[in-house]
């Protein structure tokens, strides 16, 4: 899985009957395909024959104090065996406790207790799935208790558990606005050797805070963060445009990929010039 990818959404199924020059891979939402069979799996299997694929879940509930849902993990593993994705990811968050499912990505407390809890669960899940689990940072709106900064928390979890990281640059930007920190400090604080994938998305700017709506084009501020990420981690990390609501025609999303490609080209040129002058 290399270059720029796109989130696979049912409205674009007909667009993926053949390869696309700009879209190198696709990311499917795991939970949409944890069904016995039928139409969703038919489309997914057909598209998988053409495109490399990652699967990205929203319901592993990895941070919850509820027991790990074994049935859910079995379904994820069955999907993995069917689709053979290049990468499997979910979110570093919790989605419900006491058996209730809230269908949202809730913030973890940035504490040592929480780190130990999550690390233990990641190890169990990785053992069960037989592969590395990749976790995404989430956007949040309320101050979590805890003595650590968000990036310190993520770094420690990645290093202790051996999980990969999916870095959502939009979520970092949203949180930097909501909690008034420097997003570049965040990027600098992440362990480069554990980063497996990037997400780029849009948000709604409410003035004194932002909401991660995933229904708009990538903002200039997030593109700037992408440029910083190229300088820090290079251009080899697969990067994806993610749109969950108000999903436009495919060519609109492709034009965003082209913006990203331009930034990669400019970065590569800069590197070549730097090499030439040294």
């Amino acid at each position: 899985m290399q270059g720029f990818g796109l989130g696979l959404r049912p409205t674009h199924y007909p667009d993926f009957k053949g390869p696309h020059t700009k879209i190198k891979w696709l990311e499917a939402v795991t939970d949409n395909y944890l069904v016995p069979g039928g139409i969703p799996l038919y489309h997914l299997s057909k598209i998988r024959e053409i495109y490399p694929m990652a699967i990205h879940g929203v319901a592993m509930n990895i941070g919850s104090y509820d027991p790990i849902d074994q049935q859910y993990l079995k379904q994820v593993k069955a999907l993995m065996q069917k689709i053979k994705p290049a990468l499997i990811s979910d979110h570093l968050c919790w989605t419900g406790v006491g058996g209730r499912k809230m269908h949202d990505l809730y913030p973890m407390p940035y504490t040592q207790e929480s780190i130990e809890h999550v690390v233990k669960r990641i190890s169990m899940i990785q053992d069960f799935l037989g592969c590395e689990l990749v976790l995404e940072n989430v956007s949040t709106y309320v101050n979590s208790p805890g003595e650590l900064k968000e990036w310190e928390y993520i770094k420690e979890i990645a290093q202790l558990s051996g999980c990969g990281l999916l870095v959502d640059l939009n979520n970092i930007y949203v949180n930097s606005r909501n909690y008034q920190f420097n997003p570049i400090e965040y990027l600098n604080g992440l362990p480069a050797n554990r980063i497996r994938q990037l997400h780029l998305a849009g948000h709604s700017d409410m003035g004194d805070f932002c909401i991660d709506t995933h229904d708009k084009e990538v903002s200039n501020a997030v593109w700037q963060l992408y440029k910083v990420s190229l300088e820090l981690w290079g251009e080899k990390i697969p990067c994806m445009i993610e749109r969950d609501d108000d999903i436009p025609q495919l060519d609109v999303l492709v034009s965003e990929i082209e913006v990203g490609e331009q930034l990669v080209k400019a970065f590569q040129l800069e590197m070549e010039l730097e090499d030439a002058t040294h």
Partner: peptide, 12 residues
């Protein structure tokens, strides 16, 4: 704050 307390209170 303990994880269990945070999550219970947040969800409630």
């Amino acid at each position: 704050m303990q994880l269990i307390d945070w999550q219970t209170q947040f969800q409630n």
